[in-house]
Design a protein around this nucleic acid. Structure first.
Lengths: 146, 146
DNA sequence: ATGCATGCAAACTCTTTGCAAACGC
DNA sequence: GCGTTTGCAAAGAGTTTGCATGCAT
């Protein structure tokens, strides 16, 4: 029973098998999935699952602040992150993988931004993009595909 | 004659009036425009301008690294930034405005990321979202619209 | 003159919406 | 049982593409 499921329950929302499964995927996966990725991952388990249900659930979780939408990773689709602590997402522009990178300075910056800008900061999307260690040599050799 | 136009010229690409105008909008505007915003801004001047041309030009500039795509601002459309120096974009989730915020720490973080992750960092998208000073009181009073 | 860029329209992808049937509470 | 949630299909929005015409070089 993870944080997302508890959040839904406490809000009085219904814990359907689909929602529970989506929450588990989000909480357990480290690859910042898109709606489509979650859909395909759950399809064997829920053959009648609808992509619309995944989107609806993601929107519920997002609007409750239980997950973050971290933008696309060069693949045109929104990626979601269940890790709400301020951290950096490193996106590889070649293989579209997203990895986390924790750095204390990120927290400092958030405080500075809040104090100096007058903004009420609700969240952050800190994405560095480039070539991951695996794709750096591949790029140099001129290889294709992800 | 700005940096973007020079970049196109040096790459041997053609300096059409449309491209020049798009580059000027990008370099001079401070509001991180979307393709649609650029299109509407130039329509009086180029009545036959096509939105496809704006998109094609933006993709050329982006793939040449002359502008950054900074993701959507809650409005579902890609925003572009001609300021390539590492800086923070502050997005207001209520009025969808985007302002810049310079902070030295950002540069330090980029170096740390490169050294510790093995990534070849090509750029960054550092977006904090929340309520801007104008929208903070508006939100509290329950007012609507942007 | 050459061939890249434009503009139009259609296609494409991701996401949202409407509504009847199903199900959690 | 009530009202929310699901699943399907269709709609919607942003972006891309194909191709003939036009224009920068």
């Amino acid at each position: 029973m993870n944080r997302l499921i508890i959040g839904l329950k406490q809000a009085g929302l219904r814990l359907t098998p689909q929602r529970v499964a989506i929450c588990k995927v989000l909480a357990e996966s480290k690859d910042h999935p898109t709606a489509m990725m979650i859909y395909h991952q759950l399809l064997p388990q829920f053959p009648t699952l609808s992509l619309a249900t995944v989107y609806k659930t993601l929107n519920v979780l997002k609007s409750m602040g239980l997950v973050h939408a971290i933008g696309d990773a060069g693949d045109g689709a929104e990626h979601f992150d269940a890790d709400l602590t301020p951290h950096i997402n490193l996106v590889c522009v070649r293989c579209h993988r997203v990895v986390d990178f924790d750095e204390q300075l990120v927290q400092e910056i958030q405080h500075i931004v809040e104090q100096r800008s007058g903004y009420e900061v609700q969240g952050a999307r800190i994405v560095y993009y480039g070539l991951c260690p695996d794709c750096r040599p591949a790029q140099r050799n001129g290889k294709e595909s992800a």
